[in-house]
Design a protein around this nucleic acid. Structure first.
Lengths: 337, 337
DNA sequence: ACCGAAAATGTAAACGTTTACATGCCGACA
DNA sequence: TGTCGGCATGTAAACGTTTACATTTTCGGT
């Protein structure tokens, strides 16, 4: 049924070794022989069996990606960045979206064993740190947007804290003193860092500080909407809101609109991530730009470096800068649209 | 270096067969033995080697996806739909974004051989039909948004023609008689079908018909922007525009805004796909809703059906209905926002 | 204690490659 | 003519599993 190297060898009247050599075009094979093998292979529709090949070479030409989720523009952008870089090296992408809960993450890790040459792991949950120990030791892994790891893995993150600082300071700079924050998911590293930045500015500028000004959120649009409703019930009402990501900001925006509030006149709004959508909402959303696809590309580059490395490498942590992008939703005389 | 089944067997004082049986929890293994094996495996950090396993079982628990591209919300939504369905069956996703040009597509196909149990192929180019012949015969394949295939592959598409009919009729129903169309990419099946729908209504309703009213496009936002500029130079100017996808509609929208035109008062606009973004632009975009993630889910379901089938199955073509979603950009009293 | 069946476990072949090593061949050089 | 070196090719082991089949163990019934 399936055409193997043996079929080709027999039909071409050579040994399997010769066929193999033709297909890896290494070693010397006489042009005459080579041509005959190629002709037979074409005729039979033979192509080498990837799995068998990787078993013996122990290289799969595949990169694994472990994601907590596939929702939203953030993840699809990351995937795109990774794919671009992988493609350049002729690598495939094996994607697994595992809920970050311990057991399932470990299961996903296990099922990737022997299928990939390296792993890009995105598990932003703080308590998922433990499972990370279960990574095969010495296996090339890059952590993406994860809490800094104690184990010797490379990791790439973004300047969450600094970005949150910039956003909160900007809002404060517009004269707001009562700034609410819609927090990210509980136990999420990015969320914690962004909150930390917000709080730092609240102290630094002596802004109104009250527990009710920090609203629970979950990074989802619906979560943002719900938080906005709770926020509107506060007295006095905050004059500005910093949502821990753009998805929630968009949700909040629609809640404000439904409540008849004008943004930014009645309430100013800022987000985080600068997803493509941010430019298109009305009013356009002020946000903290995160070079999402660069994140993916760097991660991949980092992984390849490690794959190629012959000496054991120092593990390193890279932090990508974020930049404030001022648009209309915060009330400043920002950029266009 | 790498822990194999043999290491576990030796350490546990059993044969490799027993270890294998424990890990596939099949066959009878005495509780006592099972426990010892599991303990040793845990201690040694052993997990089965996926590649070796698939080599012998010839099942990879992996689905391959061949995409023309990874840009845009359309593709990420499809991936999400496929992943969800695959995840439910415990399958992985091997993604390869190959330019649909013949050789690269075949290369991608080849490199997937033996790595996947089935394939979801999205190659909307009409002339890519030929390469599709190079698919291993009898291999489970589902074609997504492809021209109907002569070869016996399952295929799933969307009602492009009907959707375009609905959109164009709706615009005509608003009183527009001079409706322009920004076409999709040359040689693309979806694009051709949507154009066919547009033309049918132009004839049916006796609308203005002129070659200049059909503007070249490429499904990209920039392409839509450029086409819109060319469109604005026409005399008399069309009063309505149907863009073959939402990306181009968004590009056109920004071109119109830059030109100082109001949408829909000065010019009405409709798109296709109903990507999430469509609701958020200002004014919200009237579009033809395509159940994108359903597309992915159905494709996966179809593939699994074929994987499980013991008898050879009839190949079938499924066409998903599209629905017109009226929002503000077309000037009708549509839904909210 | 013994027999036989059933249950548990072991042995080894297979999956489709790659690759170290062995073999054979040819021509050049002494 | 014999020998050596280099090149082309063949042989067979290995990669880490699963699994058919063979073998051993267990155990109930006598």
């Amino acid at each position: 049924m399936m055409i193997t190297i043996k079929d080709v060898a027999r039909q071409a009247g050579v040994s399997v070794a010769t066929v193999s050599r033709v297909f890896n075009d290494i070693d010397n094979v006489r042009p005459h022989t080579r041509e005959r093998v190629q002709a037979v292979a074409l005729e039979l529709g033979y192509s080498p069996h990837g799995t068998a090949r990787s078993l013996i070479t122990s290289r799969t030409h595949t990169l694994g990606m472990l994601l907590p989720d596939l929702y939203g523009e953030f993840f699809s952008e990351v995937i795109r960045g990774v794919d671009q870089a992988a493609q350049r090296e002729g690598f495939h992408l094996l994607i697994s979206s595992a809920r970050a809960e311990g057991p399932s993450l470990e299961a996903a890790l296990r099922s990737m064993r022997g299928r990939v040459d390296g792993l890009i792991v995105m598990s932003p949950d703080l308590d998922a740190l433990a499972s990370r120990r279960s990574l095969p030791h010495g296996f090339p892994v890059v952590l993406l947007n994860c809490p800094p790891s104690d184990a010797g893995h490379d990791s790439i993150g973004i300047a969450n804290y600094e970005g949150a600082l910039a956003m909160t300071r900007h809002l404060a700079g517009q004269g707001h003193t009562r700034i609410a924050m819609i927090k990210g998911a509980e136990g999420n590293f990015d969320a914690a860092e962004r909150l930390r930045g917000y709080r730092a500015v609240v102290r630094e500028r002596n802004l109104d500080a009250h527990p009710t000004l920090e609203l629970a959120g979950d990074f989802s649009e619906d979560g943002g909407h719900a938080a906005a409703l709770r926020l509107l019930a506060l007295h006095p009402r905050p004059t500005a809101v910093f949502a821990a990501n753009d998805g929630m900001a968009v949700g909040a925006l629609s809640a404000f609109r439904e409540a008849g509030l004008r943004v930014p006149q009645d309430i100013a709004l800022g987000g985080f991530d600068d997803i493509p959508l941010a430019r298109y909402v009305e009013p356009a959303l002020t946000s903290v730009h995160v070079p999402i696809n660069v994140l993916g590309e760097h991660a991949t580059g980092c992984l390849f470096a490690r794959l190629r490395a012959v000496e054991p490498m120092e593990s390193r942590r890279e932090v990508l800068a974020t930049t404030l992008v001022v648009r209309r939703s915060c009330g400043a005389q920002g950029g266009p649209g």
